[in-house]
Design a protein around this nucleic acid. Sequence first.
DNA 1: TATATACATGTAATTAATTACATGTTTTTG
DNA 2: CAAAAACATGTAATTAATTACATGTATATA
Lengths: 174, 174
Amino acid sequence: MAQKNRLQYIILGLLNIESKTGYDLTKAFDSDIGEFWSANHSQIYPLLKKMEENELVSHHEVQIGQKLIKKSYDITPNGKKIFLEWLKEAPEMDNNHDEFVLKLYFINNKNSDLLKTMVSEQIEFRENKLNHLTNQMKDKFPNATKRKAQYGHFCVLKHAISREKNYLNWLKEI
Amino acid sequence: MAQKNRLQYIILGLLNIESKTGYDLTKAFDSDIGEFWSANHSQIYPLLKKMEENELVSHHEVQIGQKLIKKSYDITPNGKKIFLEWLKEAPEMDNNHDEFVLKLYFINNKNSDLLKTMVSEQIEFRENKLNHLTNQMKDKFPNATKRKAQYGHFCVLKHAISREKNYLNWLKEI
DNA sequence: TATATACATGTAATTAATTACATGTTTTTG
DNA sequence: CAAAAACATGTAATTAATTACATGTATATA
């Protein structure tokens, strides 16, 4: 694609919290981060290698059981520097690539059956998502202490929830 | 990237309205469609060529001035079929890749100066965007007739506006 | 104890998308 | 009329990201 190397910064951000293996990082995209970003292990492993060459991360080996040796990656001082610089830069604004919205753009007949089906399916989908997100919120931020400890994450989740609510309102108006 | 060929469908959708040149298509991403999707001419021209090979589009030549010959592309019956099939499919949901949100995720100190700067800069940015969008709305949909004629586009713009308002509310809460 | 599931780590092939390179014509405007 | 801006169309190099290929270990469970 030729994007702005965002995965690299996400990896740095996650390693900045604590040492992680490629597998741990991969899993992060199935849970927390996965709520708003995606990545595959087949992209993560080679990138970790490249980042190690560039001295943004290093790794130490951890023996598990009899044979298995895990590579646990750590952020280097240089990695921290690069990460903080990125945090401080103004974020790039790229478009919301929402395929539902894209499709809708091409539908000009207010009364078409296709529009009705699309909208009602989308409503169902979004309601499920909203449900999932509110559960996440209950699980992860049941009290003020947790909200403070991970304030950024809390805000992001709150954002996702209000976005879904707003999305649903809009859908119902159509 | 290995995405789902969405640009191809956008091109089909735009050609389905009327015959267009590569340049016209490119410009579409600076105006209407550009509000929520992006593409470069260096991606559009080769794709048009490929789509012509696949018989989704064809072109006819139009002489301009003395020397210049424009290629105006038309959607083929097969192209229309493919486009409508795509419209009917359930849209793929991919993540909102919002870099501001991503950065926020990594900031856990509620009182940090960085957070304050980031949020206030983002508020400014989003207010400009909201402003731009409401102007678009006034320009393009001043009356009910226009809203009906391009209902999809109208809905998309309304969505963008309500999304920005919601985004701003959320930002101000932080 | 067999077996399924989760853990763990890679590479290869392909495609999508950006940035930069490259060239020429037509129209507008000062 | 000269110059700038907009029109017009491509290619090349690079990078990002997905899907598929490939292999093996450790742990939980039936």
